[in-house]
Write a protein that binds this DNA or RNA. Structure first.
Lengths: 253, 253
DNA sequence: CGGAGCGTTGAGTACTATCAAAACAAGTGG
DNA sequence: CCACTTGTTTTGATAGTACTCAACGCTCCG
């Protein structure tokens, strides 16, 4: 499960490990770029992607206001994206798991709008944006897919907005657990048993709650036998109930 | 100020009104698509844009789950975008003023992720997405600009996320007033005197507050002589103070 | 083993929501 | 033009959810 790499802060550019894979044989398949592309197209994409950047827990992939050069697809491990507010506080804007693409917020101003930090040992595919643009011009399908990827990021942000704007602490936590569950399922991992890579602090920050509230909600959901929580290990005991909690039950009429 | 069009539900396709303008002589200039394009490019863009769709207050430009065909640039008037949550409630995701582009959330799934409703009499430029895609392939600059536009939408959503996650009612209202103020300024309108096109309900919905709270905050800011509020008419009396309210003063150390 | 950071739990508080009522504005039809 | 309806906005009283402050148990790692 964990990556067979460690301690390679200065990663050797090419070695024979599994991160050497190409897009065509990547086990993440079509998750990262939902490409129903011809083999030829995949090869071209493959050309521009730079692999082999293992990061340790706590390492930054990029920082806010860094020059924007590339977007990144997570290959293994996980990341949090966050921005620093005017008054110095941190706002977590998203968590990223294998197959998901980060950094598109940097396109607007040619500098990253948020920082990305590894929550555990992690590896990414770096996709230089200029090359991607150029290739998109030649390959309308790729352009379309990338538009879709960005659009999806927009709709996901809007879902979070709704969550923050309308939902209670329990609903927010339940929604996050369900989100992580389904993203796991997409990668053929267990939808009911998983380990949270992020701290309670990050969860609270992301969901607009304090750590204490997050902790209390977990305790409550455990008491209700909806979740089994043991530190970062989560087991969904009652999926239906969890969905009910998330869905806002309110049936006034 | 209001548009010289009314009652044209079935808008005549071509008439001699001012909405006949082309991109090259549009007084919104580079606001909508920040195009530093060559004249030739602008003409090509102009070709694909469909104008003359005046809407009345309350009319929908598109609805959630409508087929996605186009994005829209606001020409006059204003819109709110909203999505309906699973339990039937409404979540306002944004307000759109002249020069701003709506509908990019629809690209991901080829159907609109939210509805767009005119807050007052309004007109738009419709930009068919397929044509835009095709043109982008031929014009890398246009592709780049459109990527940037989408990226900007992402960063703006993230700002709203931060606002909802971290800020008090007063801070949220202040931030919205400042946002509207600066968007007005960009269009060479007054940054201190303006009319809110949306209701208190919409403001509250957008900012994750109840109507009552919105109203109370306006009253308080008025008492503090930061704002002059008279129904929908807003005057910013003390910009500095308003920025202080928005910026989270908290200077613990 | 001990410290540092993380996570949990408790008590009290505060901000915002909820409920309720009334003033006000806008639109309709007689 | 006015009575009437409907929806919006404001204000007040009360309640509840989540925050703050505080203490303590747990983990991880040097």
């Amino acid at each position: 499960m964990t990556i067979p790499l460690r301690d390679t802060t200065t990663a050797p550019r090419r070695c024979t490990h599994d991160y050497q894979v190409s897009c065509s044989n990547c086990r993440l398949g079509t998750i990262c770029l939902p490409l129903a592309l011809e083999a030829d197209a995949i090869d071209q994409l493959d050309e521009i992607i730079q692999r082999g950047r293992p990061l340790q827990k706590g390492d930054h992939l990029y920082r806010e206001s860094d020059d924007f050069k590339s977007v990144f697809a997570v290959r293994s491990g996980s990341f949090k994206a966050y921005r620093t507010t005017d008054d110095g506080r941190e706002q977590v804007t998203g968590f990223y798991f294998p197959g998901e693409v980060m950094g598109m917020d940097g396109i607007a101003k040619n500098s990253h709008a948020c920082s990305a930090k590894a929550l555990e040992t992690a590896a990414v595919c770096e996709i230089p944006f200029n090359s991607l643009s150029d290739l998109s011009v030649k390959m309308p399908t790729l352009q379309r897919h990338f538009f879709q990827l960005m659009s999806r990021e927009i709709t996901e942000d809007q879902q979070l907005i709704t969550l923050l704007s309308k939902n209670t602490a329990e609903e927010r936590i339940a929604a996050l657990m369900l989100s992580i569950s389904s993203r796991n399922a997409r990668r053929k991992l267990s939808a009911t048993n998983f380990r949270l890579p992020m701290s309670r602090i990050d969860i609270g920050n992301y969901l607009g709650l304090t750590v204490e509230t997050v902790s209390r909600v977990f305790s409550r959901l455990q008491k209700l036998e909806v979740l089994q929580v043991s530190n970062k290990e989560i087991e969904i005991l009652d999926l239906k109930a969890l969905q009910d909690v998330a869905n806002v039950i309110i049936e006034t009429e």
